[in-house]
Design a protein around this nucleic acid. Structure first.
Lengths: 178, 178
DNA sequence: CGTACCATGTAAAACGTTACATGATTTA
DNA sequence: TAAATCATGTAACGTTTTACATGGTACG
């Protein structure tokens, strides 16, 4: 059966904004949406072949180069739109960190403090990264319409709010165990 | 090669608290740690066999019943402790909802409002569930030592703070697009 | 006596990551 | 001209979920 993973939709979504190669798609994932999505070449290329076969994307003829520039087709847009309108499926999360913490009751207190401090530091770094991303979004707004901008800003904003929540949580738990 | 997934450690962790069957382990996952961890039978039973083979757990002899009650061994505790002390690996997250939102710029405004409202409602429900769980934790504290209780309370508290962050975010974005 | 829950396991399918292999093009 | 980046793809591996198959036990 056809690949039913979400990668199809990630690719269709990216191509709905700009046509591009598999390589371009990977770059888009690693930059614009890296905070909440990731893809790898081993997945992108097979899915591209499949989308082509299904007629959801087409190859721009560029016999001159080795590049394969893909464009979304009308049926591709329809398929993508249908997916967009479905409510997002519930995703059970898995946190290795919380799993460790849950079973750390027999650990010496200093180890638990170290765990939490490390977790806090990682999230402080993440917050900084988010804020830099936000700044670069605010600066580079020539190319992006204001209407589109909020859709790039919103996920980042959620990242910031969530990370801030994690930071307060770390402080709360740290003072509770001391 | 041996299974290297985190399931090994989830199982060892659960058995480090209480001996039990594969079924008990599944139940523990579905109740106590369901907010941040999940396992299924198709995974639990093979991993149990493997842990037994490696001598990290042992079977209590209960020739009378069909039940297989597993207990963690000393080497199991050592292996688990070593894992606990390693820093948790970074986990790239994937949010289907944010993927949808990012590519929704061409959707009619009412659809986007519906998306966000639906997301908000789901998180309101989740918050309620968390609060109920917290209440039941506070009540049933006879069986659990106070020292252990914070380790069950902390993940829940993070769930609450995160969910509250999502709720404010929904309001923020909803008022930004209107 | 039927329903719900307890209990164990296998097989297949689906999903996802990493490593491997190859070579073109651009830039310092 | 060397290094970095662009560019495409396959194969292997490992992980995870779902479906299937089976039967026991407790309770109302």
């Amino acid at each position: 059966m056809a690949i039913k993973s979400k990668t199809r939709y990630a690719i269709l979504g990216i191509l709905s904004i700009n046509s591009g190669t598999g390589y371009d798609i990977k770059k888009y994932c690693d930059t614009v949406i890296s905070n909440f999505w990731n893809e790898n070449f081993g997945h992108i290329y097979p899915v591209l072949s499949q989308l082509l076969e299904e007629g959801l994307i087409q190859e721009e003829d560029s016999s001159s180069t080795r590049k394969k520039v893909y464009t979304i087709t009308e049926s591709g847009r329809t398929e993508f739109l249908n997916w967009l309108l479905e409510p997002a499926e519930y995703q059970p999360m898995r946190s290795e960190f919380l799993l460790k913490l849950t079973f750390s009751s027999n650990l010496p207190k200093e180890n638990i403090i170290a765990m939490l401090t490390d977790y806090k530091e990682k999230h402080l770094e993440r917050l900084l990264k988010y804020q830099q991303l936000q700044d670069s979004l605010n600066k580079g707004n020539d190319e992006i319409t204001t209407d589109r901008q909020i859709f790039l800003y919103a996920p980042l904003r959620l990242g910031i709010l969530n990370t801030e929540a994690v930071l307060s949580w770390c402080d709360e738990i740290l003072s509770a165990i001391q």
